Amino acid sequence: MDSLSTLVTSMGLRGRLDLLCRFAGAWSVPQPEAPPGQVPYHVVLAGAGVLEVGRERRPFVAGDLVLFPRGAAHTMRHADGATLTFAEVRRPLGRLVEVASEAPRSDFDVLCGTFELGQHHALLLRALPDVVHLHTQGRDDYAGLQALMRSMRHESLQASPGGDAVIAHLSAALFILVVRTLMDQGDLQQGLLALLMDARVAPALAAVIATPAEPWTLERLAGVSRMSRASFARHFAELSPATPMDVVTALRMDLAARLLRETPRSIESIGEACGYTARAAFGQAFKRVHGTSPAAFRRQAGEAATATNLPPFS
């Protein structure tokens, strides 16, 4: 398995679709900042409009895919930029909630969803820009993205058994294709994804992702990449503001957070799986990265899992 696939698999990425928005006339819909680890996204099915993020305004059209890796607050508006309130109707539609203006037809259709990575995946999210905006219309090289977007829309409008699992898998695939597209376009010059793209550093990073419990040192990482210790460290610094051992720790703590959230394994067992033989050392490293102890993190994750998640545009 390649290093990007291994990384995404280790993250336990989940995705969902929440709303199908259909508007006509002049409309304006704000979305607040998303919680850490949640990545809102929009798939524009029909029409055009203006996206505002802070002071930046950018047009969007049918076929566009927009993601907010750090959950930035934003507003989608009618193309003339009108700031209006309007009456809306909400009703169930397959696995979605349809949000529509009170009009006989719609000029603008958009699917709104969320990728959930958990706040412990800051290392990956920091590697992405604040806004990812892909224009797929008329692009043969985006055929895979276009097919996934169509499949997600079709599946979300059905009530067939297993649909939630299908949408989750399609969403994960969509996220991976977006990341791969950014990597292929050379839009990621630094950070974790730049490291994964680099032929010299990637073998060491893939080894850490695949076997985080190994006693990794700078010398061992350099050896996996068949480089001297000094050359490896120097080249690594050109691609990432973090040191090689900082990245090793971050990857281990990403794994630890997922295991604490998703499994009943003991804290000692999880620490060993992440390369720590002593519970105290594991707890100290975890607290440095996540700001809380492993036990408190597990408790908070359990409480969050039972809380109600409000859909976007609520």
Results as ranks from 00 to 15, higher is better:
F68K: 00
R279Y: 01
V178Y: 03
M227S: 13
Q284I: 14
G47R: 05
P294E: 05
I270Y: 09
L259G: 03
R126A: 13
T75C: 00
P35R: 12
G271C: 08
A273C: 11
R298N: 04
L7G: 01
A100R: 15
I270N: 03
L174A: 00
Q284F: 08
R234V: 09
R298M: 09
A173V: 04
H78E: 15
V289S: 04
A305M: 10
S156P: 08
V110K: 01
L170H: 14
G138T: 14
L45G: 05
D107P: 04
L157H: 02
G71F: 09
L111G: 03
Q31S: 11
A168K: 09
A257Q: 08
E52H: 02
L117E: 01
A103K: 09
L17C: 02
P35K: 12
R139E: 15
L145Q: 03
D109F: 04
N309F: 07
L145I: 02
T249S: 15
G191M: 04
V179H: 01
Q31Y: 11
R57D: 01
A206F: 06
L19S: 02
A100E: 12
F108M: 11
S231W: 05
G94I: 07
L182C: 10
Q137R: 15
T9D: 13
L196G: 07
T75P: 00
P59V: 07
P30S: 13
P311S: 03
G291Y: 05
G113M: 12
A285K: 03
A230F: 10
L17V: 08
R139M: 09
R91A: 12
R258T: 02
A73C: 08
R229N: 14
R58W: 06
L196A: 09
R95K: 02
G283V: 12
I167H: 01
V43R: 07
P59Q: 08
P129Y: 11
S160M: 11
A143E: 12
A172L: 00
P212A: 10
E238V: 04
A296M: 06
P129E: 09
Q31D: 11
M149I: 12
E155D: 09
L124T: 08
M11R: 05
R91G: 00
E238N: 02
C21F: 02
M227H: 04
L17Y: 03
A34N: 08
A168W: 00
G12A: 01
L65S: 04
R298H: 08
G54E: 09
V110F: 04
V8Q: 01
R299Y: 11
S231D: 15
L117S: 00
Y142W: 00
L128N: 12
Q137H: 15
S171W: 06
M152P: 01
T75D: 06
L4F: 09
G81K: 06
S171C: 15
L170Q: 14
K287A: 15
L148I: 09
A304Y: 00
L13G: 00
V8A: 07
A305S: 13
A143T: 13
A281N: 00
L195R: 06
A103P: 01
E214T: 05
R55P: 05
A24Y: 12
D187T: 04
A103Q: 13
A87P: 05
